[in-house]
Amino acid sequence: MLVGDRETDGRQAGRIGARDELCPGRAAAVCTGVEVGLLADRALRDRAAGQVVAVFERSFYAVIDGIWICVGRTGIGSGPLHVLGDFRWPRLVVGDPVRVADSMLWVAGTPLAELAGRSVWAPHAAPHWSTGSLRRGLDGVNAVWGGVLTSEGLAVAGSGRVPSDASPLVRAAMPGLAALAQVVAGSDGDADQSLSLGSLIGLGPGLTPSGDDLIGGALIALAALGRIERRDALWEQCRALLDGTNDISRIHLRAAALGYGAAALHAAIHATMSGEGAGFRRALTALSAIGHTSGLDAFAGSLIVLRHELRGR
């Protein structure tokens, strides 16, 4: 579940270093008014140190004392791993040093962000909801969840039924989708179920593949509904399969296993649960801007969970 930069080419962490792939060089300036995701905040302690591991147009990833963070410009949206601000950084390459000293974030020997006054982002608690509000919310989703919106990636899997003319990607995901539905329904895992779930991990193009995004969205929706036992059962099976995807996607899945993802995804889940149509429309616009299909793929995973919750009531 991408909460970093656009995933236009699927480059993975550790593979970016050529100067013509990096963001244009600009003079660095210290940024104040920084927002930090609750997981990224754990890394930003004085004397913490690490290095840049991937660089993109509007963001870069770094690992500091073993903790991954995504430093990006405000437009990429809030998330648990994010450090957001009106940043200007020098040209970076993988391996450039990152450190925190005297409440300042330094990158490649240049002071980038003042951290003393940072705000910490965390998702809002799940709203009060009922069977009626969830039904209204899903009715609102159904009114728009189709056509061009779900023509790419795995978004169509959130519609409740897969069309006969589904794309090759969706057809490849079918065994994994069936296994996911079984876990969400509370069935005990077995080797066949794990094997089928494994077909989703790393499935599809992009920095965070569609299958990973979908599983992440399901994990977050289960947490929002308070279905912690089922969330943990799903994660227990998926955790053993993470070698099938890339480093950046793995860290977003690990955040999802704790119940954390992009702010827009939380907003869409909460609006659907509470039947708030206006909130869902705002969230959908924001989801559509995350990656090429990542935001919509993640919400499709959430919808699988939310639809099952309604059927079970």
Rank of each mutant, 00 (worst) to 15 (best):
T208Y: 00
G216V: 06
L180T: 03
L197Y: 06
L225P: 08
V170P: 07
G206M: 03
A221H: 08
N246L: 07
A233H: 04
P205L: 12
D188G: 02
G140H: 08
R239W: 01
G158H: 01
L242H: 02
I215W: 04
R227M: 14
L203V: 05
L177V: 08
P168V: 13
A223Q: 12
A178P: 05
V141K: 02
L234K: 04
L207I: 02
G160E: 11
D243A: 13
S199A: 10
P168W: 12
S196E: 14
A224V: 05
H252F: 09
A185S: 15
L195R: 15
N246D: 01
P163R: 14
V183K: 09
Q237N: 03
Q237V: 09
A185C: 08
G153K: 08
G186T: 07
N142K: 03
G217C: 06
A155S: 11
R161S: 15
D247V: 12
L222K: 05
I251L: 04
A179G: 06
D190W: 11
A240L: 12
G198C: 08
G146A: 13
C238I: 09
A221K: 02
S210G: 13
N246E: 00
L214M: 10
G140N: 09
L154D: 01
D188P: 00
L222P: 10
V141R: 02
V170W: 10
G147Y: 12
R230I: 11
I220P: 04
L195M: 14
P175Y: 13
A218Q: 11
T208C: 06
D213C: 04
S194F: 05
A178K: 12
L214C: 07
A178V: 05
L177M: 03
A178T: 12
V144K: 11
S210P: 07
V148R: 15
W145Q: 13
D188C: 01
D212Q: 10
L253N: 01
Q237L: 15
A233F: 05
V162K: 06
A185H: 12
L241F: 09
D188E: 13
A173Q: 05
L180G: 00
L207A: 00
A155C: 02
L154K: 01
V148M: 11
W235N: 00
D213Y: 01
S187T: 11
A257I: 09
R230N: 05
A172P: 01
L197D: 02
R230A: 15
I228W: 06
S249D: 00
A185R: 14
G189Q: 00
R171G: 04
A172T: 07
H252Q: 07
R250H: 09
A218T: 07
L234W: 06
G147L: 10
A181I: 07
E152G: 00
G146D: 11
L242D: 01
A166P: 03
G146T: 11
G226H: 08
L200W: 11
V148H: 10
L177A: 08
R231Q: 15
V148G: 11
R227H: 15
R161A: 15
P205K: 08
